[in-house]
Measured scan of single mutants.
Amino acid sequence: MPVRRGHVAPQNTFLDTIIRKFEGQSRKFIIANARVENCAVIYCNDGFCELCGYSRAEVMQRPCTCDFLHGPRTQRRAAAQIAQALLGAEERKVEIAFYRKDGSCFLCLVDVVPVKNEDGAVIMFILNFEVVMEKDMVGSPAHDTNHRGPPTSWLAPGRAKTFRLKLPALLALTARESSVRSGGAGGAGAPGAVVVDVDLTPAAPSSESLALDEVTAMDNHVAGLGPAEERRALVGPGSPPRSAPGQLPSPRAHSLNPDASGSSCSLARTRSRESCASVRRASSADDIEAMRAGVLPPPPRHASTGAMHPLRSGLLNSTSDSDLVRYRTISKIPQITLNFVDLKGDPFLASPTSDREIIAPKIKERTHNVTEKVTQVLSLGADVLPEYKLQAPRIHRWTILHYSPFKAVWDWLILLLVIYTAVFTPYSAAFLLKETEEGPPATECGYACQPLAVVDLIVDIMFIVDILINFRTTYVNANEEVVSHPGRIAVHYFKGWFLIDMVAAIPFDLLI
């Protein structure tokens, strides 16, 4: 008679799926529990143990900040960024110097990925580790590398530091407007667009060049630039800015003055950032001319202004700041037409079709709590990747769950009947059967004279019903998954307890 339990259901295979997918890609990662103190490590794979030199037993239950890997060259700011990422709910990448158990130093890129439950609360953290440099290539500990984003994938490793954006290309926007319009339909740009040429040739750093990471940081200074100062900065030398009595002219307006920039070969870094931020506020060169004239017309309804409409929906549905990093990277690809469009465009503009998908598509409701890094690593669709929660398995109709209350009560009843059979069957065979043979035949009273025979008949009927119930009862397979398919249940029961239950259900007393 089957006594099969499996009270692990309803099970959740999400954690096993993450481990299996990460292991298949030869990654070095740990999984931490966000619900406990210090976000203790609950799993670390073999790749991480080989990377740091510690065994799994030495890593388990330690804080996922990996303070046991810190050393003299470990930056405090990087460690603080990892700790801050564990307090938030967004994906974050941090470069930090770690030390192995043998004392060797290596520069590592740590990717902190939160995993949320159905309520939107962070319950786990996945920390992925990628070695960037070994100890002989690690720089000085005073050099802070965590304020910069990861290198873009479309640049060669040897040319990542030679990417320079020439400031004269930004200063000569109005001069290039006529050349853009003359391109017409034969050019790649839309009317009114501004073409910015980027020099990728390796050259020595000069005062006129600005690194790509500095251009990325310009967006942080746009908020500090007032509207009046932006307007004066875009007017140009024809209309000098008016300053109040006793007030000095704005240095932001002076930063885009061609006369002032041409007199000296070098520009201050602050002026460069502010000038680029001011130019980015204009949607095209037409807006710059309109600002000089004193009238700013409404933005025209053409394809170039609607190019950012799908980007707005993608940004609203993005799951991490990696989408913004990807957008900034692609927006700086050289030799393309940049349409400086305000994100607050007309909502009635139709979304044009684009061959290049900048932001990841909208994630469906079932995966809105899973970050983009987890979705990318697992390579699963929205119909396959579940949320991290207890999910009731989908069972067929008329199927009994093996952990249901009805099955528990039924098993206790069958257990009592088995005990009765084990006690009274030998007793009936030894004593009652002998008395029946010696006594007179009682054929007239039937079952009324033999109450134990009636009980034995009921017990046999219950055993037959138990066999039928076992054909529709779920079970737990070797992978700790609840199986509810009727065919698989029948095959599993035939290979197991079916023969024993059938022999126990045969009414031998009635056959004798």
Rank of each mutant, 00 (worst) to 15 (best):
V3I: 08
V3L: 13
H7S: 14
H7T: 05
Q11V: 13
F14P: 09
R20T: 13
S26A: 14
R27L: 06
R27Y: 09
R27K: 11
I31P: 01
A32V: 03
A34M: 06
A34R: 14
V36C: 15
V36A: 14
E37I: 06
A40H: 05
I42N: 01
I42K: 01
N45A: 06
G47T: 06
E50D: 07
L51I: 07
G53M: 06
S55Q: 08
R56H: 01
E58K: 01
V59F: 01
R62V: 07
H70R: 03
Q75T: 12
R76M: 10
I82N: 04
A83H: 04
E90T: 08
G103V: 01
V110K: 01
V110H: 01
V112E: 01
V113I: 13
V113S: 14
K116F: 12
N117G: 15
D119E: 10
I123Q: 10
M124V: 12
F125N: 12
M133E: 13
M137G: 15
S140I: 11
P141D: 15
P150I: 06
P151Y: 13
T152S: 09
G158P: 12
R159L: 14
A160L: 13
A160R: 09
K161Y: 01
F163V: 06
P168A: 07
P168E: 13
A169V: 01
A169Y: 12
L170A: 14
L170P: 15
L173I: 03
T174Q: 14
S179N: 09
V180F: 15
V180T: 14
G187H: 06
G189N: 15
G192Y: 03
V196A: 04
V196Q: 01
D199W: 01
A203I: 06
P205S: 14
S206F: 06
S207A: 15
E208Q: 09
A211P: 06
A211M: 15
L212R: 07
M218G: 10
G226F: 08
P237M: 14
G238C: 15
S239T: 12
S239A: 08
P241S: 10
G246Q: 05
G246M: 06
L248W: 15
S250D: 09
R252A: 05
R252V: 09
S255F: 06
D259S: 08
D259G: 07
S263Y: 09
S263Q: 13
S266F: 07
A268D: 03
E274S: 14
C276R: 07
E289V: 12
A290E: 15
A293I: 14
V295S: 12
L296G: 12
P297T: 09
P298N: 01
H302I: 09
S304H: 12
T305I: 07
N317Y: 12
T319M: 07
D321T: 05
D323L: 06
T329V: 07
S331N: 09
F340A: 14
D342Y: 02
D342W: 01
L343D: 05
L343V: 09
F348M: 11
L349R: 12
P352R: 09
T353A: 14
R356Y: 08
R356D: 07
I358M: 09
P361E: 07
K362I: 09
K362F: 08
I363E: 12
T367N: 07
T367P: 12
H368A: 14
V374F: 11
A382Q: 15
A382D: 11
P386I: 01
